[in-house]
Design a protein around this nucleic acid. Structure first.
Length: 112
DNA sequence: TAATTGACCCTTT
DNA sequence: CAAAGGGCCAATT
């Protein structure tokens, strides 16, 4: 099957700097797939483990984790973020930790 | 083919 | 600021 869309999403997620986070919608936009935020979630779930995709740097627009507070997934995400200096408080990260990419540089790296 | 389902998002209250 | 409602759209049933 054709997973070029997933490839683009994965490549974009790989651009999120250590210690920063991005929203599903933000990744969709940057990947050239506006309005496809939900597809980003799907793509993260299908990503091959061996590619070590930093899925934990992706969360909701309102800066809340996408998983239920206290769930195994949420806890894993919280620990992963904490390990790179991003504090998760009440299931939410701080605005200062949200990635604000330089578009020119990003588009160059993605070779668009 | 139609209905359902999300690791979502925007607007209004 | 939080919560609810409606919208979205590809994948799945």
């Amino acid at each position: 099957m054709d997973d070029s869309k997933y490839q683009r999403i994965w490549q974009t997620v790989l651009q999120i700097p250590v210690g920063k986070v991005a929203s599903y919608g933000q990744i969709a936009d940057l990947a050239g797939l506006p309005g496809r935020a939900r597809l980003v979630g799907k793509a993260l779930g299908k990503a091959p483990p061996e590619m070590e995709l930093p899925w934990f740097r992706v969360l909701r627009r309102d800066r809340n984790l996408a998983f239920a507070p206290g769930s195994d997934a949420a806890e894993l995400q919280r620990q992963s973020l904490l390990a790179e200096g991003v504090l998760v408080k009440n299931n939410r990260v701080q605005q200062q930790d949200v990635w604000q990419p330089d578009l020119a540089e990003l588009l160059f790296k993605l070779n668009y």
